[in-house]
């Protein structure tokens, strides 16, 4: 009787082609011959793992991967640094002689080797309780991942990329292995809370340039509005902004064919009068002002701009909202300015 291990390569390749991702991972563990055969196969011959979302959480004590599959089912793999263990579906495996982070990176490599579908979302949460940059091993994860992807010679394709990290440098090392071509939306959170951060490095990346939506919750130092005007949807915080800069954004947005909305949070805004001179002083009220501008390419769409105050427990800040709305929402008496300011 014939045995499966003596089958010609073409046959095994076909069998693997008809197997799903989980079956191939099981086959890999059956014997050394299968493992070598599968590992040597070209990625194109492997089945698609079809994950929709990948969430990677890394802290002082543990690393967690959450993988949402095409049935919307969430698979979690937990790595404990103290126990040097991996936990998956109630099975715990201890790795006495390995760095658990290497085990985690290897597992992720194995999973992503099969991923062909573009992810809906890739989310990184990297945090460390000790804030000393040098002795935190947490930061090693993005770097180890970056090296792994370099070795694989590929990048993760995702539509949405969300990064929660301690430092901008971590964000940059994650950019290293994310394909900018499929990116639609970027989201950033820095744990330091309302830290002031320069984004010079970010804005130079293809990821920043190619995305059309961006939201960040830290305070951007030296914001250059030209760096954010290409986003059709944007939420950003900064210290202050000039009336000229707001007018530049207004002009860009009204000329854009796919503009949606933006929200700029300001610690202070002192140029409300200048803005009134530029746009229209009649719409100027005490703490809330709003303007309507016709979009350049459509009579159906109107850009609604509103400046209002937000009183939180600690401080008062000004919020400038630019929202594109259908013209049917606007009352007939409202004054609508032409896109060129008339």
């Amino acid at each position: 009787m014939a045995s499966i291990v003596e089958m010609p390569e073409l046959v095994l390749e076909k069998v693997i082609g008809f197997s799903d991702f989980k079956a191939v991972l099981s086959l890999r563990q059956v014997c050394r011959d299968f493992r070598n055969f599968i590992d040597d196969l070209n990625d194109s011959k492997l089945p698609d793992s079809k994950f929709q979302e990948v969430k990677i959480t890394s802290g002082d004590k543990r690393i967690e991967f959450e993988l949402v599959d095409s049935d919307n089912f969430s698979n979690r793999i937990l790595f404990s640094k103290a126990e040097r263990s991996r936990r998956f579906y109630g099975n715990t495996e201890v790795f006495e002689n390995s760095n658990i982070m290497d085990v985690a990176v290897r597992d992720l490599e194995m999973i992503l080797k099969f991923q062909k579908t573009i992810l809906k979302q890739l989310r990184f949460e990297i945090s460390s309780s000790c804030q000393h940059y040098n002795d935190s091993s947490v930061n090693a994860l993005p770097i180890k991942l970056s090296n792994m992807f370099k070795k694989l010679n590929r990048k993760i394709k995702t539509k949405v990329l969300i990064i929660l990290a301690d430092y901008p440098s971590e964000v940059m090392s994650i950019f290293d292995f994310v394909d900018p071509d499929t990116l639609k939306t970027l989201g950033f959170t820095l744990w330091g809370g309302y830290l002031e951060t320069e984004i010079d490095e970010f804005v130079k990346t293809e990821h920043w340039k190619k995305a059309d939506g961006m939201s960040s919750d830290f305070i951007v130092l030296n914001l250059n509005v030209e760096d954010i005007c290409h986003f059709s949807s944007c939420s950003i915080r900064t210290n202050s902004i000039t009336a000229q800069e707001l007018d530049f954004l207004r002009k860009t947005y009204t000329s854009s064919s796919n503009y949606k909305n933006s929200s700029i949070h300001l610690r202070s805004f002192n140029e409300i009068e200048e803005l009134g001179n530029l746009w229209d002083p009649t719409d100027f009220f005490d703490s809330e002002s709003s303007w309507l501008f016709r979009m350049k390419n459509s009579d159906e769409r109107i850009l609604h701009i509103e400046i209002h105050e937000d009183h939180s427990a600690h401080s008062t800040r000004k919020i400038v909202d630019f929202v594109e709305i259908p013209s049917s929402w606007v009352s007939p008496e409202a004054i609508i300015h032409d896109y060129n300011g008339n």
């Binding site: 499966i4 069998v15 008809f18 197997s19 014997c31 050394r32």
Partner: peptide, 25 residues
């Protein structure tokens, strides 16, 4: 080949070894 693949769908490595009569390493 499809039938061979279906034999082990959803099976653990140990079960696959048994179904396909493969010795352990």
């Amino acid at each position: 080949c499809k039938q061979v693949a279906m034999m082990v769908k959803g099976k653990s490595p140990e079960e696959i070894r048994e179904i396909w009569m493969i010795p352990t390493d």
